[in-house]
Computed example of a mutant assay.
Amino acid sequence: MTIKELIELYPFGKIQETKATNENISFPVDGKYFVLPKDSLQETEIRLLKKLFPVKDSFVDPKKHPWYDYLFNQGSLNLVGNFRVIHIQLKKPKAFLQAEWENSITEIFPNLVDFFFTSENDGALIEKYAKNHYTLEELQSIFLTLDADFDSSTTAFIGNFFSAHEPFPTLFEEEQQIFKKETEYLRGKTTFALPDVALHYFTQEAMKQSNIIQTFYKQLVLTNEIQQLILSLWRNQGNISSTAKDLYMHRNTLHYRLEKFYEQTGLSLKKMDDLVFCYLLITKQKK
């Protein structure tokens, strides 16, 4: 049975990149998950769907990792304080020193309360808040150092610190979805947090559904060269000198191209509002 056939049977279902962790139930299909509200299914339907779409054996022993049980199996935890999840995607060499890498992680993170892999390459670090917690820049340096030592490649999404009173499994599920989607989009940035991708992620559907945006995009002539210029300006926060250096371009050449773009479109990439608009415009079309 395909996803298309499932949607025909259950039009209220949804497709997502990650397993459901709240009151919904999920079934693995074609590398994704088809998610349905548990209370919308009869027990016989649930048993049949589980037979048709069996979940692979877990990488994790819930008894050894209570946070996994809490996040994925609706287990209970007596929590006090604030916690964050560091979501990682680890590309490993053939001769990867797994045990040594994990030992390094536990030594580096003094406030770690749990750590596990949910698949061969995907993992989660759960860290309790402390005043000396690592900043985004420090975490980026840590993962780059580990990659150099172990010949690996790590992409990390740094979740927010949330109170233990919040619905952690639901927040964890949304962070996983953000991580999966935005990792495909990001280029040249391997450690990031919500502020880095919030504008792009939360405006995606609204931009796609706007007739004005679609029509405006058709009228614009956005060559690959212009798109790279816009993306570089965005990454460099509109700084002309940094952008010129990034594109191996003379400042005067860059100024000329910005002026030419303004004459053609009426949009000045020197103005942050216009730059944000163009950035969103081209990134939505790339999706």
Results as ranks from 00 to 15, higher is better:
37 P>M: 04
102 E>H: 04
30 D>E: 14
11 P>N: 08
249 M>S: 07
147 D>P: 07
153 S>F: 12
165 H>T: 15
214 Q>T: 12
215 T>I: 14
46 I>E: 02
279 Y>D: 06
124 A>D: 03
214 Q>E: 13
144 L>W: 02
266 G>R: 10
146 L>A: 04
34 F>T: 07
175 E>G: 06
127 E>P: 00
229 L>K: 00
118 T>F: 01
129 Y>Q: 08
205 E>M: 09
233 L>F: 09
206 A>L: 13
214 Q>W: 00
183 T>R: 14
66 P>Y: 01
175 E>R: 13
277 F>P: 00
197 V>M: 02
86 I>D: 11
167 P>L: 10
244 A>Y: 01
228 Q>K: 14
277 F>W: 12
192 F>K: 03
149 D>V: 12
157 F>P: 11
231 L>N: 03
99 A>Q: 15
255 H>P: 01
181 K>C: 01
208 K>Q: 11
150 F>P: 08
269 L>T: 04
185 Y>K: 09
156 A>L: 07
162 F>P: 00
229 L>Y: 04
18 T>H: 12
227 Q>G: 10
157 F>L: 13
114 D>I: 03
91 K>C: 05
16 Q>K: 15
131 K>Q: 05
246 D>Q: 13
216 F>T: 08
59 F>W: 12
116 F>T: 06
175 E>N: 15
103 N>I: 05
32 K>H: 14
172 F>M: 02
81 G>Y: 11
242 S>Y: 06
194 L>Y: 03
274 D>R: 04
171 L>N: 13
169 P>Q: 10
276 V>F: 07
258 L>Q: 10
256 Y>P: 00
66 P>E: 12
209 Q>S: 13
96 F>K: 00
47 R>V: 10
243 T>Q: 09
36 L>K: 03
126 I>S: 05
215 T>Y: 14
276 V>T: 10
